[in-house]
Computed example of a mutant assay.
Amino acid sequence: MFSAASYDYLLDCEDRDMTTGTVQEKLNHLTEFAEWTLTYIQRINPEAVDFLLDDVSLEIARKYYRHTCKARTVKTANNHVKNLKACWNFHIKEERILSNPWPKLEKSEGDEAPVYIPPAEDVVAAYNAAETWQQDYIQILLKTGGRAGDPRKLKWESVDFANGTLSFWTKKRKGGKKEYRIISMPEGSTLHTLLLKIWKDREIESEYVFNNPRTGTGYTRQADGIKYMLHYACAIAGVRRFTLKDLRDFVALRLDDSKEASLTDIQNILGHKRPTTTDIYLKAKRGNTETAARILDNDDLV
Rank of each mutant, 00 (worst) to 15 (best):
V23T: 03
C13H: 12
W102Q: 06
S167E: 02
I295C: 04
D224V: 13
D249E: 06
R173N: 12
V74H: 04
K70S: 09
N128V: 08
N79C: 07
A71T: 13
Y9M: 04
K104R: 12
D256Y: 12
F168R: 03
L30F: 10
L301W: 10
N288T: 10
R214G: 10
Q267P: 00
N268L: 06
L255P: 11
T31E: 14
V302L: 14
A252F: 06
Q222A: 12
W88Y: 15
V251C: 10
R214M: 09
A125T: 00
K172M: 14
R241A: 07
S99K: 10
S3M: 12
H231V: 11
N28D: 11
L105A: 06
F242K: 11
Y64E: 03
K155D: 04
T193K: 14
I295F: 06
W88D: 03
E157G: 11
C13D: 09
I295K: 02
E14I: 05
K259A: 05
A235W: 08
V209E: 02
P101F: 07
Y116H: 15
G287Q: 03
L98M: 06
R202S: 02
S262W: 02
K171Q: 14
T190G: 01
W199N: 10
K75M: 04
H67V: 02
L10T: 10
T144W: 02
L52K: 04
V124W: 09
E109R: 14
V23Y: 11
I117E: 01
Y127C: 08
F242D: 13
H67D: 05
R181M: 08
H80C: 13
N78L: 05
G287I: 07
K70V: 05
H192G: 09
E260Q: 05
A284L: 10
